[in-house]
Structure formats: C-alpha cells, structure tokens
C-alpha cells in the first residue's frame, strides 16, 4: 500500500489522480523508457517461460508437481477457450492461446500482489500491442484460407439478409470488423485494469489517510470503511483480472476461428 499512498496533499484528503498513479518515473535515471510496467512485463514474460519450461521440459505420462498445475491451466484454455471456437483446428493454435492467457493473467495479477501492485495492462500500449498482433494474424489467416476477395466478401456480405439492405449494412460490418473490434479488444482489458487500480488506490488511500495520517474520532469510522472496502475490492479485483485474461484469450480465439472458416 505504501507505493499507492505516498503522495502528500497538505491538510485535506484528496483522491489519487491518474497522473500520480500511472505516470511513473524511470527506474534508472536517464533511461527514459525503463519504467515499472516495462520491468514488470519483462519479469512476467520470464515467469511464464520459466513456469512452462519447468512443467513441460521433461513431461511425464503421470504428471506431478509443477506439471500438474500448468497442465490444469492448459486444459482450461483448451476446453474453454480454444475448442468452442476453433473446433478441430484447436491444437494448432494452443501455443498462442496458452501464451496469451498466461501472460495476460500474470500481468493482471501483478496488480494485487503486495509490493508489486501495478497491473501492467493499465498502460494501453501493452494490450494494444497484443491486440494488434492478433489483428494482423486474423487478416493474414483470413486471406490465406478464404482468398483476398473471398475474405472481404464473406466479411461484408453475411448470408441470410434481404438483398436490398446490404448497401446499408456493409459499411457497418466493415468498420466493426476492421477497426472497432481490435480497438475494443485492447480497450476492454485496459479499461478494466485502469479502473480497478484506481478503485483500489482510492479505497486504500481513504483507509491510510483517516487511520494513520489524520486520526480523528469522526474520521476513524470512514477509515475503517475504507480498509474493509479495500479488502473486499481486492478479492473482486482478482476475479475481474482472471475474467479479463480469459476474455482476452477467448476473443483472440474467436477472431482466429472467424477467419479460418467463413460463417455459414
């Protein structure tokens, strides 16, 4: 909590602003790009690689130890994320989807781990890069499997609608698939993490301020409410973070599945 409640505001309580929460100084003076989220992103990538390496470098038929845990996650991604949308192509894309799911999950969970306490995805650049790579893959796979004309024709002229209305609906379909979909893909993760981090920071700030900085008989109950809300919302945040990682991987598999097979 210390990193969240450090700034002093004089004599009055004021809520933490996005600037002081998310605009972090560089860790090494002089190296502008090397801030806390970058360090956390690198560390999470190393952690995910290490976990899967420890689990699957020498796989055994009867899993034990680390292999058991990671295999459970793999099964979850395969049954809940890949198979409903990709069908029999699921195994080809398991590598990508497992990587996405675990990476985003570790990124998000960094928001509630004590001392670390910064969800990497709350800087929009990180989810934007992931969404952009999925977008490029989606278009490439679509053109490869359906042909250049076929892909855009299947996308902009879905079957089962009256002929006359296609003129009105094709621009909507094009804009939705080509621009809005990757945008919401990234923004959904970003906005959830951003808002969650702000919420936690606000409640822990309330608790810290009214119980430690300015302890008064009238302010103490407010501080206790702040601490209780911090605990409740931390639990809620863990749930949201897991859900967002799942949703990110699921949308990726949905887009890939949509460009592998034309809708019918």
């Amino acid at each position: 909590m210390i990193t969240l409640t450090a700034p002093a505001h004089g004599d009055e309580f004021s809520a933490p602003t996005p600037n002081e929460l998310f605009d972090l100084p560089p860790l090494i003076p002089g190296v502008e790009w090397f801030t806390k989220p970058v360090l956390l992103a690198v560390l999470s990538a190393i952690l995910v690689i290490g976990l899967t390496w420890a689990a699957f470098s020498k796989p055994k038929l009867v899993p034990r130890g680390m292999q058991n845990v990671v295999e459970y996650g793999y099964m979850f991604v395969r049954d809940q994320v890949a198979r409903p949308f990709l069908g029999k192509d699921a195994d080809r894309f398991m590598g990508l989807l497992v990587t996405l799911f675990f990476l985003v999950l570790v990124w998000n969970l960094a928001g509630v781990i004590p001392v670390v306490q910064f969800p990497v995805a709350s800087h929009i650049a990180f989810p934007a890069v992931l969404a952009l790579s999925i977008y490029v893959l989606k278009i490439w796979l679509g053109i490869k499997h359906q042909g250049l004309g076929g892909y855009f024709k299947n996308m902009m002229f879905p079957p089962g609608l009256p002929k006359a209305i296609y003129v009105l609906l094709s621009p909507i379909e094009f804009l939705s698939n080509m621009i809005i979909a990757p945008f919401t893909h990234a923004v959904r993760l970003f906005a959830n993490m951003f808002a969650g981090h702000m919420l936690l920071a606000f409640f822990s700030m309330v608790g810290f301020w009214f119980l430690f900085e300015k302890l008064t008989p009238l302010g103490a109950p407010v501080g206790i409410v702040g601490v209780v809300m911090t605990i409740i919302f931390t639990g809620f945040e863990i749930f949201i973070q897991f859900l967002q990682a799942f949703l990110f991987a699921m949308l990726a598999s949905m887009y890939i599945g949509g460009s592998l097979h034309a809708e019918h």
Partner: peptide
C-alpha cells in the same frame, strides 16, 4: 455475441 457492442458502435459511427 461479444461483438454486438462493436457492431452498434460501428453503426453509430458510420451513420
């Protein structure tokens, strides 16, 4: 089903 909001947004933006 997850892309319904993006369809609505796209329709609103185009028209």
């Amino acid at each position: 089903m997850w892309s319904i909001p993006s369809y609505l947004l796209a329709g609103m933006i185009v028209y």
